[in-house]
């Protein structure tokens, strides 16, 4: 019983605590690969602490939507972090919802962010918001279909069930359909997390940015919450990817040594995929805006193939 209370808290702490680190790690590796020294990998933490201590400047054109958005975004991502199996495949709160709820909670966060981008009345915000909606609507079908492929392999949409079944039945993982689904999901992840080649998280040049454009007007605590939420989103997407397609090492139960091993392996796996993201970012240029649907279309077609091959061959 105590484990059932501790685990959710542990999960939240891992996601909330480590998400800035992932961002710092990616930035650092990227800098090293570009022969730069780069900021410390703890820099995101320093930024967050600095921002949390500051007052905020709020635009006079904006309304309560602007002030509510950081909280809504942050909370919806926090709820997701309770539903995703992070260290143990037994998620105590898994009766609350499944992967479809998770996808739509991401949508909730996005809905409010885009509203805010229109709220301040600057043209940059609207541009970012409109592009964000475009990218996410193109990514949504691919995401849903690749998740469905996994769900149909194990007959469940509940992430905890999925991880559990795949863990105990590793042969299922060696499935070409799942492989296709993995590729599709990886492309979607890059798009959803706003990384190169879809979006450039480092730029503040209005013609190229998508996600950053929506956050231009935030400051102080609001900016901290939104930034934190976006790095948590990246980590959560990575966690879902890692724990669905490579569940090895995740604790099956709630024992203490199991969780320790799971944590170590989790760090290794996330580190590896973060490194892969860096490699992708280094080797591609940012796509032109209207080339993005092509990339996401490829992801969609991969996911369609995944599900069709699953149906036909099964």
């Amino acid at each position: 019983m105590t484990a059932k209370i501790i685990l959710p808290i542990l999960q939240i702490l891992v996601i909330v605590g480590f998400s800035p680190l992932v961002k710092g790690f990616i930035n650092k590796i990227e800098a090293r690969l570009q022969c730069r020294r780069g900021a410390s990998i703890f820099q995101p933490y320093y930024n967050l602490i600095k921002l949390l201590r500051k007052d905020a400047v709020v635009s006079e054109t904006s309304s309560w939507i602007f002030r509510a958005t950081p909280y809504v975004t942050f909370i919806s991502i926090l709820i997701i972090s309770l539903l995703v199996p992070v260290l143990s495949s037994q998620v105590p709160l898994n009766f609350t919802g499944d992967i479809i709820l998770i996808i739509y909670l991401f949508a909730l966060a996005r809905f409010f962010l885009v509203l805010t981008s229109l709220d301040t009345g600057s043209a940059f915000g609207g541009m970012g918001g409109s592009r964000e909606m475009m990218v996410s609507s193109m990514a949504e079908p691919a995401m849903i279909l690749s998740i469905f492929t996994v769900a149909l392999t194990v007959n469940s949409t509940n992430l905890s069930n999925i991880t559990n079944l795949l863990l105990n039945n590793s042969v299922l993982l060696l499935n070409p359909s799942l492989f296709l689904a993995f590729l599709a999901f990886a492309i979607v992840l890059i798009a959803e997390a706003g990384r190169i080649p879809v979006d450039n998280p480092f730029t503040h040049l209005e013609l190229t940015m998508i996600h950053e454009g929506m956050m231009l007007e935030f400051s102080g605590r609001y900016l901290a919450l939104v930034e934190w939420a976006s790095s948590m989103k990246l980590l959560l997407l990575l966690t879902i990817l890692v724990n669905i397609f490579f569940p090895w090492g995740i604790a099956g139960g709630l024992t203490f040594p199991g969780l320790i091993i799971a944590f170590a392996l989790y760090v290794v796996k996330i580190g590896f995929f973060a490194f892969l993201i860096v490699i992708v970012e280094m080797s591609f240029a940012k796509l032109r805006l209207f080339r993005i649907p092509n990339l996401l279309g490829t992801a969609f077609i991969l996911s369609v193939l995944a599900i069709i091959s699953l149906y036909v061959v099964r």
């Binding site: 919806s76 309770l82 609350t96 509940n158 069930n161």
Partner: peptide, 18 residues
Amino acid sequence: NFTDLSPTSATVLGLILF
């Protein structure tokens, strides 16, 4: 065993977390 969903508890969770 396909899946569960409980919007009530999701809402309650959201409020607590807030």
